[in-house]
């Protein structure tokens, strides 16, 4: 497949923004209006920040904690959590995009020619367009691009 797992490094919790993923209970900060039954509510800044931090080279333990916090936050707020995220990769060539899996918390970088496992390929060109902060991929193939301000593009 040709993808290379990026080395991870442990980072300290971001005390400035208070966006460090909470363990267990997962403090729900900045809760946004949520559309009941559909994960279409605006993603609050702490959530956006946490997703961005998944790609910040976290240590394995921190990565798992962030993923757990995200899963819990999504489930509490929207009733469901995505399988993972596809986002543009800023490592530069040959990598174009990366996949952040919440289940098992995989972080993989992909070159344009590398195939991504299903159901993530549908999100790749959206992520590579650079217009979205990240693209959420749900079980069943639902793809929800999220803009930098947290707005979700309705399916």
């Amino acid at each position: 497949m040709g993808h290379i797992e990026r080395p991870r490094r442990a980072v300290r919790p971001d005390t400035a923004t208070g966006a460090a993923p909470a363990l267990g209970g997962g403090t729900r900060r900045g809760s946004a209006p949520v559309t009941a039954g559909a994960p279409l509510g605006i993603r609050p800044p702490p959530l956006l920040h946490a997703v961005r931090r998944l790609d910040a080279g976290l240590a394995d333990e921190a990565l798992r904690e962030t993923a757990a916090w995200l899963r819990e936050h999504y489930t509490n707020a929207y009733g469901t959590a995505p399988l993972g995220y596809v986002a543009p990769c800023f490592l530069g060539p040959p990598y174009a995009d990366h996949l952040l899996g919440l289940d098992g918390c995989i972080l993989e970088h992909y070159a344009p020619a590398d195939p991504m496992p299903a159901p993530f390929p549908a999100a790749r060109m959206l992520a590579r367009s650079g217009a979205y902060a990240y693209v959420e991929v749900y079980e069943g193939g639902l793809v929800l691009p999220v803009l930098a301000d947290g707005t979700v593009v309705r399916p």
Binding site: P112, A122, L126, R128, S129, A131, V153, R154
Partner: peptide, 15 residues
Amino acid sequence: HAGFSRDYRAKAPSE
């Protein structure tokens, strides 16, 4: 507009 943009971006060929 958001749906329109998403649809054509997703349609762009990866290869």
